[in-house]
Design a protein around this nucleic acid. Structure first.
Lengths: 206, 206, 206, 206
DNA sequence: TATGAATGAGCTTTCATTCAT
DNA sequence: TATGAATGAAAGCTCATTCAT
């Protein structure tokens, strides 16, 4: 009734959802994309049934985990843009940021992949599935806008944005499974250089 | 008993394995990464039990499917190198080849991903897991050798090879789930250009 | 403390129980015999926990709903007897009354059935089960008394009473599930005629 | 391949289905309409998973149990008609037959009831449900035909058939739950008399 | 060697019941 | 007294794997 009580419940709810979300991430980190609800419950320190108080079903839970992660990434990206660095520096920072983000949250990355391949191609079952606005797209959209401002030909912007997004994804793709020895900063540096300069000048003079 | 009969059995074995592998690919294409052994058996025209005569378990079967796919890709890559084209052309052909290969075998790509995250990180269960020589690495190794020949600084070669490998993977990552409208050849062109020239010269003069 | 306050609490208690009972009936009407406690709580406008303040468990709640319904029916039956109609008329009215009663409360009828088959015959679990005086019997008893007054042979009375009770039940049995087209009054008429006159005179003269 | 092998498999299948069906009846007798698949599996001496080799789901299994029972009843009814007894005798035999049939298979009767009330009234979920031709109707239809031959007014035949069917059901309704003391043959006699003669002549002369 | 019926562990999900507030 | 979040014991169902034929 009172505003404070409303806030209180809402806060509690958010807290629960967050703690489950984090537990889910830990669980996914341990068990892979095949996490069970029991795994998530255990890792969250609550009981299986409680999960269903906050999420309709497994699908919704995983989607929310995914969305939550993306939102954090978007915030970090925005911080980079806010610095107002020159183009090259911005690109380097963007690459490094995304790389670091997922490197610290390898589990999250798995979830993204699993959600993109919803277990079959039967067109009928898509209707009842969770189909939120393409939150991943938000990230690419933001990049697109930046490129439209910075590049000469606007038309390349969307593809370039997507390309960078996926290129970094590619790097992560390698880094995630094996505990790779190469330093993350070096990878980021290398990738940024390649993006900015391509292979030009690296070829043998021959 | 006789050498010929031995050979015969070996041939039969290979034939079986191949036919199962192909059936598995078709099954995966239909059902996604969640294929069941029954799906694979049906699509291969044999019975479920027979699968276990040729493969230890589901995990090994999928790994072999994955390996088999890679072997085909390697063969195609070798064809590209055999043409003896100039560097730029070779890069473009390589990109296009890999892109086409997986675009025609989207299902296979899923399997690769699923296999990279073998369902758990508990160190205890690794013992019983399939741990084949890094067959994927073969592809990167081949590229590395090429770059070592072609580039000035040998030390960059491995990273560059891996990078290209993953970059293309990134592109596929986008193409697989949604029946994306953009033409594959355009994507390949764009990616090759970026690899070869980077963003140099695209920035606004400002 | 004071007598008035005691009464007050008692009244409140009765009021609560009744309102829950009615809510339960509505809930059963909507969800069938598989009502959940939550359904009942919602329909009663109270919370799930509160149900357990007034009823030991689901079983007791449903039994009380059932009993409550029967009490109403008994009252209506009494009204029929109070009219002092001749025998034939009384029978007809009784049949019609019961038929109408359950026809308007189809849901209630389901509960009766479910409660008669309390989910198991293991003699051990009977102890914790609700075992109220056979309330249904009250209805049959009342009929028995009437027949004892009206019929020549007193000994047939109990069986006849039970028989009529079940015959009407049989009719309802058909009417409940399918939204049957036949008019309730016609069914009642037919049944009464049969009870009163049997098949005598309907046979072909042949 | 050979006819004998075909027969063999078919026989085995029928044997399994029958043994499960019987196990289900026993399980229902013990646990009521709320039998679980595990109960049925235990009682059938097989494992839970095996049930799903022979029945799509719980619903289909229960329906088949129900149908199987009805088929047996129909056969017995047919035997009665085949005797070519006079009308009164036929009615008496029919009543006794059905009464005995269900008295020996009380569990089966529960299943019939549960299947008539498929757990809710949401009209949407009916589509995917098992909806076989109304096998119960077959029994009533058979009776109807008999009455059409035997009674003067054909139009009463369907209602009379249904009525008798449900009247007997009503009797069973009483006999099932409590291990009732009254002799089945007496109940049958009484019911037949009432059907044939009604209450005529029983009233006090007064 | 090939089969596929049988198994049972394990999954998602529901819901009666409890208890701290 | 009233609440409803939390629980956890089942339930229905799937599927990798085994083994008698």
């Amino acid at each position: 009734m009172t505003p404070s009580s409303e806030t209180r419940e809402a806060v509690l709810e958010r807290f629960r959802v967050e703690s489950i979300t984090e537990g889910a991430l830990r669980a996914i980190a341990r068990k892979g994309a095949a996490v069970t609800m029991q795994d998530i419950a255990d890792e969250s320190g609550i009981s299986k049934g409680t999960l269903y108080l906050y999420f309709k079903d497994r699908d919704e839970l995983l989607h929310r985990v995914s969305e939550g992660g993306l939102a954090q990434l978007l915030a970090k990206i925005e911080d980079v843009f806010a610095k107002g660095l020159p183009f090259d520096e911005t690109i380097r920072e963007l690459v490094l940021t995304k790389l670091r983000f997922f490197d610290e949250r390898r589990a999250l990355y798995r979830v993204h992949f699993e959600l993109r391949f919803p277990h079959g191609r039967d067109p009928m079952c898509d209707s009842k599935k969770h189909n939120p606005p393409p939150e991943k797209q938000l990230y690419v959209d933001r990049l697109t806008r930046y490129f439209e401002e910075q590049l000469e030909s606007k038309e390349d912007a969307p593809r370039l944005a997507q390309f960078i997004s996926e290129t970094v994804a590619g790097l992560l793709f390698r880094r995630i499974p094996e505990t790779n020895g190469s330093k993350l900063e070096d990878d980021a540096q290398f990738l940024s250089d390649l993006l900015l300069n391509g292979l030009s000048g690296r070829r043998k003079k021959s």
